[in-house]
Simulated assay, not measured.
Amino acid sequence: MADRHGTGTALLAAALLSATVACAPGGEGGSRTPPPLPAASATPVATTGATTGATTGATTGGGETDVTPARPRTLVTGLAVPWAIAFLPGGDALVTERESARLLRVTPRGEVREIGVIEGVSASGEGGLLGVAVSPHYATDHFVFVYFTSQDDNRIVRYRYDGRLSDRKVIVSGIPKGAIHNGGRLAFGPDGHLYASTGETGERGMAQDRNSLGGKILRMTADGRPAPGNPFGTLVWTYGHRNVQGLAWDDRGHMYATEFGQDTYDEINLIEKGRNYGWPEVEGVGHRPGYTDPLLTWSPAEASPSGLAYARGALWAAALRGERLWRVPVDASGRVGRPTALYTGEYGRLRAVAAAPDGTLWVSTSNRDGRGSPRNGDDRILVVRPSS
């Protein structure tokens, strides 16, 4: 594996050359031999407390001297691959564990209670209990949603949660499943509709097939029907994705997604209705008609970007292979500025990032997923108070 701390001369040299890969061909951030680096297309900037090695399509002008937040606080220890975090109105969070299929409730004081084990989960490879989302109308409907891998497919199931889970309803089934690239992120957008990311399971062609649910971002109602205004009259919102792992919106309603590349570029994309994001025809910036280029790409050891959140004028992306938290400023038009890498190598693989009602970020580690090196207390949830 490449240098995990990102401070050596070799890594800095690579960062200055280009932004390359994401997750290994067989998985999410495994070791690999990187391909030759292309010519430089942008110069990263060293910021106080961290180094950056990403290539951006546009910048916001810089001027930041120290954006490093305070040290994270450990909220919870002893979890097993906490994959997703979603907040209830009162400030408690629902947390999924990928392999145990447990749905947990975690309080801001660090108290953990098992709500239940989700029925029908088949956890193998990168599959299992993945995303979770809480209805924006939770106060009246008490709906929570989970995305998981079953024996037959990936699916989205809705529950009513009022202290216990009830009224189970499968709202979307038939999402392709595989040993790798199962997507799995769930999030409600500012339009009130539910978005889900799906992977192409290693079968590249399905990402370009608009009749397939694989390699897409889906948009739906709370009943699992295509949301009004969807571009193709189906669940599909955007296509040409390899394996989207993070979804977030800024305070102006721009939608962003993190995506694992294959051998060259990991990405943050600005997600817009009906767009084709290129995979497998284009990876990274291609400048090809009909395909949408990413806002930002990363180099090999720095990324495998997973969870994504927006807070205080920036996107915050968790890196699995990169073992760091990225802060990426965004401007009013949705363009990104120079990223800053935080906590490099200190907590291992980072999986989920969620913005809490109190203004903090909750970040989960993923060191017990078979690709990390578990430390005493792993896996854990960290609390970060973001800087502006």
Rank of each mutant, 00 (worst) to 15 (best):
D167R: 13
L12N: 15
V45R: 15
I115Y: 08
W362K: 04
E119W: 07
W298H: 05
A332S: 14
D209Q: 08
R109A: 15
A187S: 15
S18Y: 06
L194W: 00
N367C: 14
R335P: 00
E272H: 05
A317L: 00
G6Y: 07
L104T: 15
T9H: 06
W279P: 11
V285E: 08
W326N: 10
R210M: 08
T292G: 08
G192E: 09
A15W: 09
G90I: 00
T55D: 12
G30R: 04
G224D: 06
A311S: 15
G240A: 11
R164P: 04
K169C: 00
W237H: 04
G246L: 01
G90T: 00
T77E: 15
G274P: 05
D3R: 04
M1I: 09
L79M: 09
D379F: 12
E281K: 13
F188I: 05
H5I: 07
E114K: 14
T65N: 11
I171M: 12
G131P: 10
A354M: 10
T221L: 05
D379S: 12
E203V: 01
R4D: 00
R98N: 14
H287G: 03
G116P: 04
A123R: 01
T360W: 09
R168I: 05
G359H: 15
G214P: 10
A42I: 01
T96V: 07
G284K: 06
R4C: 01
A317N: 12
V144N: 11
A46S: 15
G307V: 03
A133Q: 11
A354F: 02
N230H: 08
S166A: 14
P176E: 07
R160D: 01
G377Y: 14
V244S: 14
W83C: 01
T107K: 09
R73D: 10
T365D: 03
R275K: 11
R210G: 07
G377I: 12
G192F: 04
G274K: 05
L11W: 13
T56P: 05
R185E: 14
G215Y: 04
R164D: 01
G110V: 10
D263W: 04
G27P: 00
N243P: 08
E283S: 09
L88C: 11
T77P: 13
G253T: 09
G205N: 10
R335C: 01
E283A: 08
A303C: 09
V121Y: 02
V132H: 13
T360C: 11
G26F: 00
